[in-house]
Design a protein around this nucleic acid. Sequence first.
DNA 1: TAGTGGTCTAGACCACTCC
DNA 2: GAGTGGTCTAGACCACTAA
Lengths: 247, 247
Amino acid sequence: MHPPETSAASDQRLPRYHQLRERLSAEIGRGEWLPGQAIPTEAELARSHSMSIGTIRKAIDALVAEGILERFQGKGTFVRRPKFDSSLFRFFRFNRQHGETRIPESRILKREVVSASANVAAALKLAAGAPVIHLSRLRLLDGKPFLVESIWVSKARFAKLLELDTRQFGDLLYPLYEQCCGQVIASAQETLTAEAAGPATAKLLGVKAGSPVIVVERLAAGYDRHPLEWRQSRGAADHFRYEVEIR
Amino acid sequence: MHPPETSAASDQRLPRYHQLRERLSAEIGRGEWLPGQAIPTEAELARSHSMSIGTIRKAIDALVAEGILERFQGKGTFVRRPKFDSSLFRFFRFNRQHGETRIPESRILKREVVSASANVAAALKLAAGAPVIHLSRLRLLDGKPFLVESIWVSKARFAKLLELDTRQFGDLLYPLYEQCCGQVIASAQETLTAEAAGPATAKLLGVKAGSPVIVVERLAAGYDRHPLEWRQSRGAADHFRYEVEIR
DNA sequence: TAGTGGTCTAGACCACTCC
DNA sequence: GAGTGGTCTAGACCACTAA
């Protein structure tokens, strides 16, 4: 005997705090509470689920550790809105004068509808050849290009992106996804690799062809873990720097 | 008013679970319990510290999350022995046939005593110009070189390394540090950067000069957080691949 | 069977926020 | 002052390990 892979109503054999954690996570995924909103208080959850406060806290602890909830003493527990447009700066460092977070300027170079290639379809969990929107984008800091991006999203979910003028997209895509298409990005998996710059990339980045380039591939998903966007970002390696603690 | 930066006896104003956590951490650092050994049971700690089991568990939870302790139901709670020689494989992927962890062969190219340069002294928290041991090492998989390393340790702590024949060092340094010099590595901070291969590195790695190379700088420390070893490892970028989950 | 960690309870009091 | 999360207690029972 082994436990079923998934269960609609959260396996009764699992600890109660684990069941509650999955239940809350699913409810957030369905949008019961939107990012920034408060979930019920611990006392309220204890009443409504007939659990002790300690058990409630253990479930919430896990969601806080996952980055899905935020707690504020005296105020409440809130659905966290992940902002990972600053995540670029975890990989690429620039002479930030006073440690401030600057949002890079974005320029859409191309927008087109294409058939999903095998790897794009696999990443986004679409049928092979399904229609996808492909964006080509240049990101600049102080007017200097530092990142070249290719972005793919499903045409079905993001059709509204085709109606806007690309000059109105703004500098950040995720708020646009949310406002324009109702798609909220909650987490992402990033993969780093390195390569020698091809001629096109080198020209856009203003470096010599063949010089080292870092490739960041990001698969971004909603609260329900369904993949929503796949992107590749390329930047010159001389600004690349990443730190990890290992044990 | 602000709390003091550090306190010899763990600030009484902090939560009791936090005080216990620091106390256990310090005791492990002093070697009261060695890696692999069990710490007292939760019930015993509750008695000896006059705390409730719940508070004891919260302290241990934190140390488990930090990777310092390991719990096994029915057996006990043990000091974890970090093995991060497999950490190379978090950065560099090779055609591992069956997912096995292979230990790369190591070849010491050079061993010398030098005066610590400014950055080495700063990293190891030594006086500028203090004597340090510098090792130059090549690591190979299936007889093929894949990593060039430069390693610095304080001569004062690691003097015994100078007495051994470098051919007897073996493939892993950390067990050697432990057996030969009594220095246990507990954690490390790694910094990734990328560069174009210089002629010497390129020749050792068997790649063209100027091709992309990943540099992993590691500062390794003992349980008391004191830095013990600083190393730079360089590998060809085509085998580099690293994954991160972001939120 | 004895001893370990894992789960859970039903409270108490404190620190903080906001009105 | 009312309401929130943060800390802590003093137990109970369960699941697992090892002799």
